[in-house]
Design a protein around this nucleic acid. Sequence first.
DNA 1: CATTTAATCAATGATAATGAAGAAAATAGG
DNA 2: CCTATTTTCTTCATTATCATTGATTAAATG
Lengths: 111, 111
Amino acid sequence: MRSREFLGHHELMVMLAVLRLGRDAYGVPIAAEIAQRTGREMLQGSVYAILERLESKGLVTSRLGEATPQRGGRAKRYFALTAEGSRQVRETQRALEALWHGLTKTAGAKP
Amino acid sequence: MRSREFLGHHELMVMLAVLRLGRDAYGVPIAAEIAQRTGREMLQGSVYAILERLESKGLVTSRLGEATPQRGGRAKRYFALTAEGSRQVRETQRALEALWHGLTKTAGAKP
DNA sequence: CATTTAATCAATGATAATGAAGAAAATAGG
DNA sequence: CCTATTTTCTTCATTATCATTGATTAAATG
C-alpha cells in the first residue's frame, strides 16, 4: 500500500465542511460552506469526486435521503465522517499545528 | 492558467519548515523538521521535488552556499520564501482556520 | 578509496480541476 | 391530467498537477 501519510488539502477541507454541516452535509451545501468560509470557490464536480474518494477509503459514509416537497427537491446524498475519518482529520490538524505553532506572527516577516 | 486555488498540503508543510528554519533552511533539515514535528517521515526526494516546484512557481528562492569544513560538507542549497510565498502561506492558513474554527473540540464527537 | 552529507533523477501513482451532461423531483400551462 | 420546463442535485470524462519511491550522482573529508 502506497500510504499517503496525510490527507490531501481538499480532502481535509471537505471533511471539515462535513463536520460543520452535521446532518445537512450533502454535496451542494458542502461546496457552499467551503466557498463561503474560505472565500474561494470549489467546484461541485471536485467536491463529489473527493467525497467518492473519501468514501472508497472508508473515511466517510453516505446515505440516500428522501425527496423533499419543493421544486427540484430530489433526493440528497448525505455524508458523515467515519471514526477513522475523524481520526485522520484530528491527526492532520495536529501535524499542521505542530509545524505552525509559534509561527503565526512571523509568517510574513522576512528580513 | 489553471491556478490551483490553494497550496498543496506538502507544499504548505515544506514552506512552514523553511520559515521555522530561517537561514538554516536546506533540504536535509527541512525533511528532519517535518519528521520531528509531525511524527511522520517525508522522504528527501519528496522534499526536493516540492522545493523545485515551489521555486518554479516563484514561492521560494534558493541560493547556493559554500562548502563547510567537515566530512561530507558539500555546498548546501538554502531556501527562503518570497513575498508571494509568504502571502500564500498566510492565505492557506487563514482558509483552513476558517473551516476549522470552533470545531476543534467536536472533531471526534459523532453521535 | 572509503565514507559522509547533500542533492538530483526517473518513473509511477494518487489527487485535483474543469466543463458538461445526466437524473429526479416539482410546478406550470394547456 | 399530462407533458414541458425549471430547479436541484449528482455523475462522468478528460486533463493537469502533486506526491512517492528508490536509486543515483556529486562533492567534500579521512
